[in-house]
Design a protein around this nucleic acid. Structure first.
Lengths: 225, 225
DNA sequence: CATTTAGGTAACAATTTAATAACCTTATAA
DNA sequence: TTATAAGGTTATTAAATTGTTACCTAAATG
């Protein structure tokens, strides 16, 4: 998923498209518009929006049909779909929600309320940060707590892993000894002079000699030569 | 997350509590009720509901205050919060959504619409993964509450199953001990140091030694080697 | 009402991790 | 070149963490 959230709006009234588009862009969203149901489906497939706002009544396929078609495709299982329509009817609303819509908004709606709704809906969808860092032939997986070297899992103890993860978080950057102490041991605990070295040694034993290089008088860096 | 979805309703009108409770229970939800804001907070902490329906005007803390308090606690970051109120005011609605509410419903509301809304909201969070997870020769069926190993059904107690289901929801991911405690026992109950270990041991006895691996100093993960 | 089961705890054993002391090696500046 | 400071190595020990068993209580079961 990209950093800025993508929103697709489908409505046959150009005025609506323009006013919504203007407001949503003002909030930093990337906005795509469609003038009818078929165009909505095409653009949804092409742009993989995070949220789709559908007018119910459109030429060609109506909103409900678009929703049904998209919901049958697993690519859109996680996509938020919201109806925005002038039909203020309880049964239509229930049917929409049963068909997989995430919200049902009735026109007229103030831009402010719409923006709140949109932000509230998008807040829920997950933005997974990469938990895996790759450096050379190494993969450091913070989620699984393992390091993979050329496809082979390497088991590290906790402090060792934290140390590798820290150094690998910025490959090539030299981490001062003090910096390492602060970030891994914290400012409270005080450990002896040789503690870092011993850990570095264990890591080198497990990962190979050439993964961490010493910068004498300064610190260590993770680097593949 | 538990198997059946838990819903907490907070309202000072007993009639509302009863009618909503009746309807939601009829759909298979587990319903907890609270008569005021403070009770809502207590019960939220104790029962970890998946969804909270808050009346805006209540004696003691009002709905907005309850929402704000819960949203400051990370344990409730993933909890859905919905306002149900007679105040049909645009600014209040915007403020609610900005304060972290997931929806804003106005009274009067028909039970049918409410049920659709609830189901639509919960649909999003229940899709944390498929209800059947397959890991190696294991099949964990969260809906039917059973684990199948090479075609043979294995009987687990509830806590054991919840633990397996949690770990298997992301095979390979290391779950911190704290994370496990929070998600299975909740933040209120305090259990001893060895409780998790004992459950893990029982699971290992039933599923085989190699299904859950220990990451010392960190947690456990479900993984087939 | 007896029996079983789930879930938790205490006590102790086993294991792993991490720190340190003591000593060794290497690079570098005087 | 040699003194010196920085880092490397190893074994040992202490501390932290987890595993295991036996046992207790409350709730479910029949």
């Amino acid at each position: 998923m990209s950093i800025t959230k993508k929103i697709l709006i489908a409505d046959d009234e150009p005025d609506i498209l323009e006013i919504l588009s203007f407001n949503l862009k003002g909030e930093g969203y990337e906005v795509i518009t469609a003038k009818n149901g078929d165009e909505a489906i095409d653009k949804a497939k092409a742009f993989k929006p995070d949220l789709i706002i559908l007018d119910m009544m459109m030429p060609g396929k109506n909103g409900m049909e678009v929703c049904n078609i998209l919901r049958t495709q697993s690519a859109f299982a996680g996509t938020l779909i919201v109806f925005l329509t002038a039909i203020n009817d309880e049964n239509t609303e229930i049917k929409s929600l049963e068909n997989g819509a995430d919200d049902y908004l009735t026109k007229p709606i103030s831009p402010k309320v719409l923006l709140s709704k949109v932000s509230s809906l998008l807040r829920r969808i997950k933005t997974e940060g990469p938990s895996i860092v790759t450096v050379g032939d190494f993969e450091i997986d913070r989620e699984r707590f393992i390091v993979v070297f050329k496809g082979t899992e390497i088991i590290l103890a906790r402090k060792e892993f934290e140390l590798v993860a820290l150094l690998a978080s910025k490959p090539g950057k030299v981490f001062l000894r003090n910096e390492i102490l602060n970030r891994i041991w914290g400012t409270e605990v005080i450990v002896g002079d040789r503690t870092i070295d011993v850990h570095i040694r264990k890591i080198r034993q497990k990962l190979g000699e050439d993964c961490i290089s010493t910068v004498k008088g300064v610190g260590y860096k993770f680097e593949i030569s």
